[in-house]
Amino acid sequence: MRISKEPEERKQEILEIAIKLFAQNGFEKTSISDIAREIGVAQGLCYRYFPSKDVLFQTALDEYANMLISKMTKGIDIKQNSLKEILNKMTLFSEHESDTYYQMFHDNQNKNFHDLLALCVCKKLTPIVQEIIIRANQNHEINISDPETCASFCVFGQLGILMNNEIALNEKSDRIKAFFNKLFNF
């Protein structure tokens, strides 16, 4: 008996099963037909929502990056908080193994996926940081002549610390906060 589902529900189901199979078998060894078989649907249904395996992967990457950005900015009001308040509230967070896509992006065989995720998060976070810098300029908290470049360095420049597994999470946070406080003369 065929089970009908709402389009968004079906799309999410395909996405979640694909991520599970990518994590278990690797991206290269997982086909759209494997995903369809796991769900119990025709292969064509998967292609209706995702025209290729690459698009399916990119969708998962974007979705997980958005989830992480949401966690990073939780409790911060970039329209109301001063730059100093934002820096004081800024915390590094740790992803959890129970997160929907954690296994796929953090398995040792998928290191390239993790690196792509880090870059995707940075690309999505940079305009947010740029907006914070522009607002801080307008409020005369700082005087940055090129907010776009500053935001890019603030976001992408952290990767060296964040991806260093020899540094404890709390030390990473302390180092990054100290750097920003010095950068912005707080």
Score class of each variant (00 low, 15 high):
H106G: 03
Q158P: 02
I35E: 06
Q58F: 00
F180E: 12
I86P: 00
L15N: 10
E13Y: 08
E148R: 07
D54L: 00
R135W: 05
N110K: 14
K11Q: 14
L159K: 15
L15I: 09
A151Y: 02
I142P: 05
G40N: 08
I144M: 02
I32P: 08
M163Y: 11
I39N: 07
V41H: 07
Y49H: 09
S4E: 13
D54K: 08
H114S: 11
F50G: 03
T59F: 06
N112T: 15
F57K: 15
F179I: 11
Y47Q: 12
P51D: 13
E131M: 05
D77R: 11
K53R: 12
I3F: 09
L125K: 11
A18P: 03
R10W: 08
D54S: 01
I32R: 02
A23K: 13
F113S: 11
F93Y: 10
E171A: 04
T30I: 04
G157S: 13
I32S: 11
A42H: 14
K124M: 06
Q58T: 13
I69N: 05
I32E: 15
E131G: 02
M104D: 13
H96Q: 12
M72K: 07
D115C: 04
F153G: 04
H140I: 02
K11C: 01
L169D: 15
A136T: 01
C122A: 13
L125S: 05
D77N: 09
I161E: 10
P147E: 10
H106P: 07
F27N: 04
I32D: 15
A168K: 11
Q58K: 12
